[in-house]
Design a protein around this nucleic acid. Structure first.
Lengths: 236, 236
DNA sequence: AGGCATATAATTGTATACAATTTAGGCAGT
DNA sequence: ACTGCCTAAATTGTATACAATTATATGCCT
């Protein structure tokens, strides 16, 4: 688990401990243990991680910059609650950037990276079989981030990281589809395109995959979900 | 000047003072008063703005997240020095995102926003006539950001903000072209496309404009430039 | 003189204390 | 019982003090 959550994101933080807090909180958000709207009290987070408010604030700021956390003046930090408009923007941006990223990945991906992608899919299926929906979803996100890393474009990778994180929040709020395992096929198709180095196919498969994901959202309902910080982070 | 630098960026900071420091530093970087590699000492910045290190660190972190500042552990914050590879990535990302943004702007821009764009061009010409090259360049960047705002897409706008800032650093390091006023034509052509609501033309003009900009770089040379923090911020 | 080790100074990393602001609860009045 | 205000508690914003690390200068040895 540490290897999976270790390099989830580069938070541009000089401090090592703040980076760890970022990773833990990000993983919790990606796994839907921390739900949109949850308050991230500085004292509470600090106590959970054994750090002072100084370093906690740095971590929360970093998460705010990637769109996962919203900081309100004199009110504190909360897990972001993307509006339907935000959801629209997130998937519009993903549909622009990720197909291009997939095209680059098809051109540059290595054999070992391909193997890593397959490992991701296996782990995702495993989590699904174990009924750990949150973990499966987080792994699905990691899959997209790994593709961006294989594209060897630091700026795109950072953008994808942020968009994936926000997508996770959007899904937590608006996902409403019966067939939950629909993603697997697209992910396999992506690997196929990468293996044959078919740039255009990788581009198109990624695009249709994102359209498919977006169509699984129900942007009419807007549930008010909040979770407990302490139990979301217990044993992680 | 305050109106121009006020809303240069949303730094996701809850504090008002840190945001002001971000704006000032960002403006100084965009105007090439602060050059790549300049050290941003916490004490020094704090004294210049009359703030404690706590708030200065928050500001520097925010700038690090937008790619304008690089924080090195136990070494401090420096104005970023994009490598030639970084420069390539920045303009590759701009070439993907900004044409799409221009297309959206052509669809949604209002009359008052069009007027604002023309005002920008006038101010840019004025600065050029006055020999204030740095200010002209900053205004040119603001022009692109204003377009993004007119596209009414918060995520794209944030991306463009960050890319423009990094472009300014790239230009500071690698710009090496004789005819410096080449941009004006493209900017006028963009306004024309917006006025006629010609989405495809806006897209294409923006793309060729960015290719043109990129072709003005000389990525062979890598000058080692640094500037003084105090004089860069005097009377601003 | 040049290079290396050590000591000193300067700078960043972190914790804590205090100020400012918001939130919650209680009390009086209607 | 409900509304409004006022006070107290909790939380964030900021400054400062101390610890850890890095940079600099000094002196010694070859």
């Amino acid at each position: 688990m540490s290897a999976l959550s270790r390099d989830l994101g580069e938070f541009f933080l000089p401090s090592g401990r703040a980076h760890d807090i970022c990773s833990s909180l990000q993983t919790a958000i990606l796994e839907h243990r921390l739900l949109p709207g949850t308050k991230l009290s500085e004292d509470e987070v600090g106590e959970l991680f054994g750090a002072s408010r100084t370093v906690v604030r740095a971590a929360l700021q970093a998460l705010a910059h990637s769109g996962m956390v919203e900081m309100k003046r004199n009110r504190g930090a909360f897990v972001a609650q993307p509006s339907t408009r935000d959801a629209e923007e997130v998937f519009e941006a993903r549909s622009l950037i990720e197909p291009e990223v997939a095209r680059r990945a098809a051109r540059q991906i290595t054999a070992v990276e391909l193997t890593k992608l397959e490992t991701h899919i296996d782990a995702e299926h495993e989590a699904l079989a174990a009924g750990d929906m949150g973990r499966a979803l987080a792994l699905s996100g990691r899959f997209h981030i790994s593709i961006a890393e294989s594209a060897r474009h630091a700026i795109y990778t950072q953008m994808v990281r942020s968009l994936i994180a926000q997508s996770s929040l959007v899904i937590a709020l608006y996902w409403n589809r019966a067939d939950t395992t629909c993603e697997s096929h697209s992910h396999h198709a992506l690997i196929d395109a990468f293996q044959s180095a078919d740039e255009q196919k990788a581009h198109d498969v990624m695009r249709s995959h994102l359209v498919d994901l977006y169509s699984g959202l129900d942007l009419r309902s807007k549930p008010e979900t909040t979770s407990s910080l302490a139990e979301a982070l217990s044993s992680h």
